[in-house]
Design a protein around this nucleic acid. Structure first.
Lengths: 152, 152
DNA sequence: GGCAATTAAATTGCACGCAATATATCTGCA
DNA sequence: TGCAGATATATTGCGTGCAATTTAATTGCC
């Protein structure tokens, strides 16, 4: 142990970080999805918003943000792009004029059919067995819960 | 199973995706590190570059990119900001003028002392036991390897 | 009812990330 | 030697992410 390693062997080694592989995995996944999403005219974050809406719509901007851990600074312009693409509509909630409700158009709903095989197609290329994927998903989901709970 | 669920129960449910928790975890971690890195004047990606340089410097832009899975489009402006902050120098490699070598300044090297307790401080807040963290790190690292290998 | 505090979105400004492209340098081979 | 192809970095353009601020609407409390 060198004289400059008072914090332990070397806590600052890149290969010791948990944060870094998560960061790298996220970037790599965005890159991996790009060619599959390009024919649908979607970016990866836009795809996530569509996943939420395909499950339940209309949804407020805040609702989308809570689900995806994103704020209005990210979602407002993103949803406007989806609106410009004709996939969603935006309207003020009559019951609470502060809210904006994002809803699917016919084209937005129809896009789900084109997206259906994306998870299977992209998952297959990784050669991870199902149980391993499931465990990874659960562990990272729990981590997300922990970090989100630790937030202000 | 509904008539619109031909791809399985619903492969497009957000909670079924492995990609999403990784994406969310990455964003949340960046947010989590921000207040700890602010006193050092670093963003999270800048911190990762410094981690690499603290391990071995000088390093070429390409070397940084290979280690962090980033390209010159991201690294060039980032490293220039580190240079403007007085933490690194940039110079052409005399042996191969195409390369740019990024090296630590005295201030850059000195910053390591201030960063030393960051991993422990931030890790402690998550209340995950060490073995669990280790397993998560290994699994995600393996995933990163798989996706990176699948890349062109 | 009325006003302060809260809440929901939108806006602004900055730093990524990356595809596509441009520029400069090097390597290999005729 | 000289030149075509490959390689390393830089640049451009666009879409995020997010802190900080602004604007508009609602709630709570008197």
């Amino acid at each position: 142990m060198g004289a400059d390693e008072q914090g332990g062997d070397d806590d600052l080694a890149l290969d010791r970080q948990v944060c870094f592989p998560l960061y790298a995995a996220s970037n790599l996944i965005t890159r991996l999805y790009r060619p599959a999403l390009a024919p649908l005219g979607l970016t990866y974050p836009q795809y996530l918003v569509m996943l939420v809406l395909w499950e339940s719509s209309p949804e407020s901007v805040g609702g989308l943000g809570e689900r995806l851990h994103l704020d209005s600074g990210t979602l407002t312009p993103l949803v406007k792009r989806l609106e410009a693409a004709g996939l969603v509509t935006r309207r003020r909630d009559a019951a609470d004029e502060r809210r904006v409700l994002v809803d699917l158009t016919g084209a937005g709903r129809a896009l789900k059919a084109k997206a259906r095989n994306i998870p299977k197609t992209l998952g297959a290329g990784l050669h991870l067995d199902a149980s391993e994927v499931e465990e990874l998903r659960e562990t990272v989901t729990r981590l997300v819960g922990l970090i989100a709970a630790a937030e202000p």
